[in-house]
Design a binder for these strands. Structure first.
Lengths: 415, 415
DNA sequence: GGGGTTAGGAAAGGGGCTTTATAAAGTCCG
DNA sequence: CGGACTTTATAAAGCCCCTTTCCTAACCCC
């Protein structure tokens, strides 16, 4: 059990203040103090710190009711850049953000099946990172860090990808491999937690102590925000809700078990739902998940019976599985995220709400809002970049009064 | 979102130190520092505080390797008394503990069906509390507090029983009602969290940041220990795992839904498992849960086929449901608690372990130990008493130092 | 009875947050 | 047009917490 120190309080407050500034830029110290519950003095020192770091700037004044005008601060978008890397089964997606978390540059590398050796993946990441830095034309020194999301179980402290379900990775020291080619500070975690932290900072989970981010993609899982922070579990593998048994002796899952949630509400599960309902449906694009889901979404929009029914069936499964999270964790908000949720959108949400209402207890249900993610870009990239932002803010607190380690900040760009 | 203050750190440390002292009384400051990770100085001040409160005493010395002997401290059992109240559907169970958490007195009041008006329950509690105090012969002033566990959803801050599933209680201000008759500090919560906190302080969850306490009784639920503390959820109703769907369109549950975990692994569910397997079994005592479970336990011990099979069936359901918790929360330990688990004991545990292993993912499974509760007495009473203990320790930190300072003469008055 | 060794306490130091006082920058009105 | 009032921002002081460091206390052994 790790012990909390007063520094952690400072770090949490720093997060909270910057989060608030990003959310409602420009804003005043007064507003920040009210929003965060901190005293004016603390807000002022924290704001001063961020000003020193050039992460925010003063942008003028706002009339007050008869007294001295409030100074306004806003994110200094060009004060730094953050890079988020989303490594998935078939692609590597990289985005470069400014400090207001706008996307300045994007790069995507596709990986052919079988191209899954760690060195190959590292090569793709390195290339894409180099590309976004070049595209955006930011100086290397301004890149505050690179967050990397890789599927599976990850030890974020050692930077080791302990286990990747799709590839045959076991204890790959990914961070070490990457750091040979990328000179920026690196942060490793998995997509569940990345999208959770994205929602926590910029999305529907902001300001909520307990939230669940449900990821619906090819894989399925949940990112848990508990007590205002990410819940990782003892071996950093919490949130594996997709491989939870929904139907006893149900469909065979790639994890080896039967009846996992993923086999009913993941992209492949939805395709199976469609196949079982209407094996010859023109909506079905065998072997192409995105095409099928897109066709379904279009079908629902057009009011096609089959499409509507498939979404309803899927939502029934999903509702039961989400109700588990609602009953057990009693969150304030449940966010449906990732590409399947984004494409099926409102129709899915409506059905899910109804289904959850049928399965969950009244009290926890009443306390939970279920919403679609409002993050416009790839939430995993954004979340990964947020890890880098958190890392940069945390380093502030550890400014060594001893001039010990100048080796920390290297300025060489990616090769 | 509530904000952490440095005082919370102190309170957590105070808990930790006392917990450790109770666990390994007598012990030395050295040992405490090593066990808690705190510095010797901090341990010394906390120990001093507890000595001042007379919650612990110095009990001699222990040889050190050649130097000054270590001073030993131990719980001062007679330094105070704690009362735990377990209100259930059919009874009120009250236990009075000394500070070493030994039971000094017990009282039980049975409630007839229909005798469920709040005033009636309050009457029973008042009588039983009076009885244990009299029996133990402790002075009123030494009673540090009374913890009360009541089923259902509870707002611990306002002391309101928001909803009790068995009785038709809605927003009953139970704490206010009780405080008219009981003069000791009162603490209200529900049995899930009570038994969880009991395991956290004195049981298998001690020292673990993330643990799940699974309660198997007439009702079924889980107490969650996350990040070293109880997880309550946003409306204080986290842990309602018993009313989570295990079988789609399965057995009808008293909560109104179908296929809840409780209907398969609660006492009544186990009876149903037995009935379905062998409707005429002599093990079955219709209308008597405890007799049936006892008969099952005896049957398993005697190697009876039917009994073994029923336990196995039950464990299969339970395993799938526990695997959900393991996958989602990734706890370090899962504790099986409450009377059904206690009576079925090792045979159930073995089967559950196997069943969980079939359903959970390898990584989280490898990190989780599944054990039976080792708490000998009623864990709910113990947990309720622990709430009172926590309350007493928390009050220490809020000693109001409102010293009326006579205004000192200021230096350099404005001339 | 001195060293050597270990325990425990007191003081100093480093962080944090808040309250209070002071300075700064406006508005309002006589 | 200048003082009075108001509001904001910063500086100072106080309190809480934990740790490190130094020193004294207590015991062993030679």
């Amino acid at each position: 059990m790790k012990r909390g120190t007063s520094r952690d309080i400072r770090t949490a407050n720093r997060y909270e203040v910057l989060r608030q500034i990003i959310a409602s830029s420009p804003t005043s110290r007064q507003e920040l103090a009210a929003a965060t519950g901190l005293s004016l003095a603390t807000v002022a020192t924290l704001v001063g710190e961020l000003l020193d770091l050039r992460m925010i700037t003063e942008v003028g004044f706002e009339d007050s009711a008869g007294g001295r005008p409030r100074g306004l601060v806003a994110v200094n978008a060009s004060g730094g850049a953050l890079i988020g890397v989303d490594i998935a089964e078939t692609y590597v997606h990289v985005e470069l953000f400014d400090l207001a978390l706008n996307v300045l540059a994007r790069a995507e590398e596709n990986m052919r099946p079988g191209e899954s050796r760690p060195e190959q993946v590292v090569g793709h990441v390195t290339a894409a990172v180099g590309s976004v830095v070049a595209q955006a034309g930011v100086e290397a020194a301004r890149v505050l860090g690179v967050g990397v999301s890789v599927p599976g179980q990850v030890d974020r402290d050692t930077g080791i990808a302990e286990y990747a379900p799709n590839w045959d990775w076991h204890d790959v020291p990914l961070l070490d491999l990457l750091s040979e080619h990328i000179a920026y500070p690196l942060y490793l975690d998995n997509p569940l937690r990345a999208s959770a932290v994205a929602e926590l900072w910029f999305g529907a989970a902001r300001g909520h102590g307990d939230a669940v981010v449900v990821n619906l993609g090819t894989g399925v899982g949940a990112g848990l925000v508990l007590g205002g922070g990410l819940h990782r579990g003892v071996s950093n593998s919490a949130g594996e809700w997709g491989h939870t048994t929904l139907v006893l002796d149900g469909r065979l899952c790639r994890c080896g078990n039967h009846g996992c949630v993923e086999t009913y509400v993941g992209a492949l599960g939805i395709m199976q739902n469609l196949r079982e309902l209407s094996p010859q449906s023109p909506l079905l694009h065998p072997g192409d998940q995105t095409a099928t889901i897109d066709a379904l979404a279009a079908g629902v929009a057009a009011g096609e019976q089959v499409a509507v029914k498939v979404v309803r069936d899927t939502a029934r499964y999903l509702g039961a599985a989400v109700a588990v999270l609602v009953n057990v964790l009693n969150p304030e908000v449940v966010v449906l995220s990732s590409w399947v949720a984004a494409r099926l959108g409102e129709p899915l949400l409506e059905e899910v709400r109804e289904a959850v209402a049928r399965h969950a207890l009244k009290r926890p249900l009443a306390a939970s809002r279920i919403v679609l993610s409002a993050i416009p870009t790839d939430p995993v990239c954004l979340g990964a970049a947020t890890f880098a932002l958190e890392g940069a803010l945390q380093r502030v607190g550890q400014r060594s009064t001893k001039r010990a380690t100048p080796a920390r900040s290297r300025t060489a760009p990616a090769s």
